[in-house]
Amino acid sequence: MNALDIAIAAKTYRKNSDTPALANLAFTVPSGQFLCIIGPSGCGKTTLLSIVAGLDRDFVGTVGRADQTRIGFVFQTPRLMPWLSARDNVRLALDPPPGNEGRAEALLREMNLGNQLDSYPGHLSGGQQRRVALARAFVNDPQLLLLDEPFTSLDAPTAQQLRDLLLALWLRQRPTVVFVTHDLREALSLGDRILFLSAAPGRVVLDLPVELARPRSPDGPAVEAARKRLLDLYPDLLSGLDKQRNAEDAA
């Protein structure tokens, strides 16, 4: 069963603008799949996630998903409420008590934030804030999890720690994941499948299943070999310059 059925004919930022942000972008995502989306900056990846989440309704096309899908969204920045403690930020995603006591705390403890439950975001490091944001997205057991370059601007060990955490949570709860990134190694180490988008207006130029055995490491030989092979096959893939040829290759 498909969790997502996307068909965006056109999305422009301003009315009467000549250059659409997205055009003829169509794909489906089976339930429980970990999908990565890669594309050059400015190709409309963030816009695509906003449309999928229902934050942006100003587009031509359809987004098919079950009406009451519980969505978790990890934004490019943590977007925590600065006036709420870590615990209350995570609780925000839960229905008010009674019923869910202790869930936020348990998840935060699991993420090694047990000593920071009552800290305000301003007192947390960047990596800790990301973890709180991840906990907020996961705590209500989402069916669809959207992540927008969630681990950029973090040092490599912290980013890897958070990737492992994300994978562990995904394996346990099995939500459908759409993970936007511009890092091919990251996508190869995380995804079941990678969609490559063209430069604006963004559309799918390559739909690539990733069949590497898990667990994978972004710096491991398997991911590196897959990356080399991919770049040899599609040398323009990440430049997004030669849209036409990529499209033909994909076909």
Binding site: A53, G54, L55, I71, F73, R79, M81, A93
Partner: peptide
């Protein structure tokens, strides 16, 4: 508005 979007994604009822 980025924080209001968070509230929208979490489907917070109006009062909350």
């Amino acid at each position: 508005t980025s924080l209001l979007q968070v509230a929208q994604v979490l489907r917070l009822p109006w009062g909350r």
